[in-house]
Design a protein around this nucleic acid. Structure first.
Lengths: 197, 197
DNA sequence: CCATCAGGTTAACGACCGCTAACCTCCCTG
DNA sequence: CAGGGAGGTTAGCGGTCGTTAACCTGATGG
């Protein structure tokens, strides 16, 4: 967990604000002038940092998918010899952290994929598919009774459960971050267990 | 279950195609010409049936929320004296039926709410809130250990799980409709049980 | 000390989009 | 057999949006 201490670059500011706005009002519902205004510059100034509005969305979505996949691979690698159920817990924990800390990105991730150019969309889909398959393998190790299509459906459903964080009331709702994370974790485990029965 | 046998009206055709297109490409990503073309008329002909593009979305979202709430109320009413766990099963079953049979509507339901005019949005939110509160009451009866905020979070999360149907591969993926419904039902029950522990 | 360049600015263009206007054509009914 | 309304059509207006062009400015390094 190499925490950043230096100030965010302008590019990063733009991406962050664009993610928030895209998540709030949809890709087509946000104008470049608004994105510019959100970082204190106005409209066409953005073109000094990005080739266009599409490029911002592409960078966001590729970044998310890559980050999720990289984190999951790292977790699998670190867990060598530990029980598969523990590995699954680690995957769940990682996904929850992401869903709680980057809600706009989680929202974009499954909502604006179709606004991408063909080449970018294929890349994102490939990263997403790898991420899913990695989960499916672990789940099937823990619950050998599951067929592969059933396991895949179960994984997608649990993603739906974990990605519900944007609907869970604004941060500072009652259970607090730790409580929410624990609740989601329990429910995900319970859902998988029920699927495997 | 009063099954319709008569042909759909033009209004209904338009709503159905609009729902599909909105779900696929987002409200702002679809033009009125496309919606018209999808039902064989072109562009401004739609204005013989709807006041505008906004009105189509409003009617769709109000219809969805109302239908979900009405169905849930009916299920609660029919179940008098039966155990709360059975009532919860009935709610889950109803939601799954809707999620499996009207995927585009489920997608719209939590995605395009913010594109509505203030008055319509408030109405839809009120219907949604009633629906959630109804679930929360039943869930807390089955699992009395849950605080109200925790139960509400659990309900939202299970909605996320059930509403994942659009990601579950196109209809005709392997487990078939009945198998998918059964899987989702088991997982929802397992998730609630884990939340209540 | 001047050249360069990163990073802004405003003006404006072209495309698109929602919607209205004006008109046409059946079909039904008195 | 008028005639009127339901349900289409095409043309076009007004506004918005993404993008480009042209220009400006302050820091930086040889």
């Amino acid at each position: 967990m190499a925490t950043r201490t230096d100030a965010p670059t302008r590019r990063e500011q733009i991406l962050k604000e664009a993610a928030r706005l895209f998540a709030e009002r949809g890709f087509h519902g946000v104008g470049v002038d608004e994105i510019g205004a959100a970082v204190g510059i106005s409209g066409p100034g953005l073109y000094r940092h990005f080739a266009g509005k599409d490029a911002m969305l592409a960078e966001l979505l590729v970044g998310i998918s890559g980050q999720l996949l990289t984190g999951a691979k790292r977790r699998l690698q670190e867990a060598d010899g530990v029980p598969a159920a523990t590995v699954l817990d680690s995957l769940i924990e990682g996904h929850i952290d992401f869903a709680l800390d980057d809600r706009p990105l989680i929202t974009l991730h499954d909502r604006e994929l179709d606004r991408l150019r063909d080449t970018d969309r294929k890349l994102v889909r490939q990263l997403q598919r790898q991420y899913v398959e990695l989960w499916v393998e672990v789940v099937r190790t823990v619950y050998p009774g599951l067929t592969e299509p059933t396991a895949r459906s179960a994984v997608h459903s649990v993603f739906g459960l974990l990605n519900s964080t944007p609907h869970l009331g604004r941060p500072g709702s009652l259970p607090g971050r730790a409580g929410t994370a624990a609740l989601l974790h329990r429910m995900a485990r319970g859902a998988f267990a029920a699927a495997g029965a």
